[in-house]
Simulated assay, not measured.
Amino acid sequence: MLERGSRITSGDDYRGVVRRGSRFVGEHTVTYVRMNPKGGQPRFGFIVAKTVGNAVTRNLVRRRLKAICHDSVDSAARGSDVVIRALPSAATAPFAALHDELDRAFAKRGVTPIPTDAR
């Protein structure tokens, strides 16, 4: 689970990242990245709308996204704010597909270094 300091919690921060951040569109997610002018540790936020599915499905998708980000938090660039919006196809996507997609998004947007075993 992500620590409280690694999560985006305010609506203003979410809006700032989504409106002014760079965007990476994947098959199952849309990832927004913005560098926080205050610096600090990387922070992650998640948007999983009702179009993804019922409450159980949305929470499953959110937990999967959090687990992927938890793996990336140590190697993420300091001061990066990341918001991940789940698309409806994320509900049926395998965990490995979500992980690969977010790895590509993080590498392309400079959140984490490009892995040596480029997927």
Rank of each mutant, 00 (worst) to 15 (best):
M1V: 07
L2S: 03
L2I: 08
L2C: 08
L2R: 05
E3H: 14
S6Q: 15
S6N: 15
R7C: 12
R7N: 08
R7S: 07
R7Y: 10
I8P: 08
I8V: 14
I8R: 08
I8C: 05
T9V: 15
T9N: 05
S10A: 10
S10F: 08
D12T: 13
D13E: 15
D13M: 08
D13G: 08
Y14A: 01
G16R: 11
G16N: 13
V17Q: 03
V18H: 04
V18C: 11
G21I: 10
G21Q: 06
G21S: 09
S22T: 15
R23S: 12
R23A: 13
F24C: 11
V25I: 10
V25L: 10
V25F: 09
G26Q: 08
E27L: 14
H28D: 11
H28P: 07
H28L: 08
T29F: 10
V30L: 06
V30G: 01
V30R: 09
Y32L: 11
R34I: 09
R34S: 11
M35N: 12
M35R: 15
P37G: 13
K38F: 12
G39V: 12
G39A: 07
Q41L: 13
Q41K: 09
Q41D: 11
P42G: 07
P42F: 05
P42A: 11
R43P: 05
R43I: 08
F44Q: 01
G45F: 02
I47C: 00
I47R: 00
I47E: 01
V48Q: 00
V48E: 00
V48W: 00
V52H: 02
V52W: 03
G53C: 03
N54Q: 06
N54R: 10
T57N: 05
R58D: 10
N59A: 14
N59E: 07
N59T: 10
N59F: 08
L60K: 15
V61S: 04
R62M: 03
R64A: 05
K66H: 12
K66E: 09
A67Y: 06
I68Y: 05
H70Y: 10
H70R: 15
D71R: 14
S72R: 15
V73S: 15
D74T: 12
D74K: 13
S75Y: 06
S75N: 07
S75G: 02
S75I: 11
S75T: 12
R78F: 03
G79K: 02
G79E: 01
V82T: 14
V82P: 02
I84M: 00
I84L: 00
I84P: 00
R85F: 03
A86C: 00
A86H: 01
L87D: 04
L87A: 04
P88Q: 07
A90T: 02
A91S: 11
T92P: 00
A93W: 05
A93Q: 05
P94I: 03
P94H: 13
F95D: 09
A97L: 11
L98N: 05
L98T: 05
E101N: 09
R104K: 14
A105Y: 04
A107W: 01
K108V: 07
K108I: 04
R109C: 07
R109Q: 15
R109E: 12
V111T: 02
V111P: 01
V111F: 02
T112K: 08
P113D: 03
I114P: 04
T116W: 04
D117M: 05
D117F: 04
A118S: 10
A118K: 11
A118L: 08
R119M: 07
R119I: 12
R119P: 09
